[in-house]
């Protein structure tokens, strides 16, 4: 994709110092390896450096859609003062979570595209971070029958898939905690109105088909 910008030689010891202290202070039982990544030509994710975790607390690290893994990654990149456009250059991982997640996102992108073509209605994914949204956009890039765009802001930003010629829906008003009340809206990943079929086994919650492993 682009030239290597970071390497174990340039940032490895700072990552190591920060992580060692943080894991120890937090009482997380995990080890990690910091490795350079040979460029793979995979357009979905080509980090320069990967940090791989192992050990008894990997389950905790990967719980809740790898919430802790992503938090450690984010704080580490902020500690390194990396500009946000570089944030895909370092990737934290454990048990191949990242690879499996990308596969999962690609599959849900294709499922969403099929559904949009069949129903003619837009499909709204659950909110995702920019790296995950990018995977969805890339997966749909070759499909001329649909188009995808991101809508909303901050942690609520989400991908919406439309039939190719359809105009964008108006942005939902920003509401920090709408999940518990009111009629169902787009935040469960279903299309905004109608067309929600429940007869296909998979529940089509945006970005989350059944996973074969915990």
């Amino acid at each position: 994709m682009t030239d290597r910008k970071y390497s174990v030689a340039s940032i490895g010891s700072r990552i190591d110092g920060f992580l060692r202290l943080t894991l120890q202070n937090a009482g997380f039982k995990a080890s990690y390896e910091i490795q350079d990544v040979a460029s793979s030509g995979d357009e979905f994710e080509t980090p320069d450096v990967v940090v791989k975790f192992a050990g008894p607390d990997v389950d905790l690290i990967l719980a809740n859609r790898a919430e802790l893994l992503l938090a450690l990654e984010h704080v580490t990149m902020e500690m390194l003062d990396m500009p946000s456009e570089d944030h895909s250059r370092i990737s934290f991982d454990a048990n191949d979570y990242r690879l499996l997640r990308i596969e999962e996102l690609r599959l849900s992108a294709l499922t969403a595209a099929e559904k949009v073509k069949r129903t003619g209605a837009p499909f709204r994914f659950n909110p995702m971070n920019s790296r995950e949204r990018r995977v969805i956009h890339l997966a749909l890039r070759g499909d001329t029958a649909v188009r995808s765009e991101s809508a909303g802001s901050g942690p609520q930003r989400q991908v919406v898939v439309y039939p190719a010629g359809m105009a964008s829906l108006p942005e939902l008003p920003y509401a920090p905690a709408p999940r518990h009340s009111g009629p169902p809206r787009g935040d469960r990943g279903g299309p905004p109105r109608g067309g929600r079929d429940r007869d296909r086994g998979g529940r089509d919650r945006g970005g989350r088909p059944p996973r074969p492993r915990p």
């Binding site: 905790l60 919430e67 938090a71 984010h74 704080v75 942690p155």
Partner: peptide
């Protein structure tokens, strides 16, 4: 701004780490 981050993301990440560490205790 450094501890809060854009859209509060850094603060949220620190809270996630703190929450997980607390869970162990």
């Amino acid at each position: 701004g450094k501890v809060i981050g854009k859209q509060g993301r850094t603060a949220r990440s620190i809270r996630t780490i703190l929450g997980a560490a607390g869970m162990k205790l």
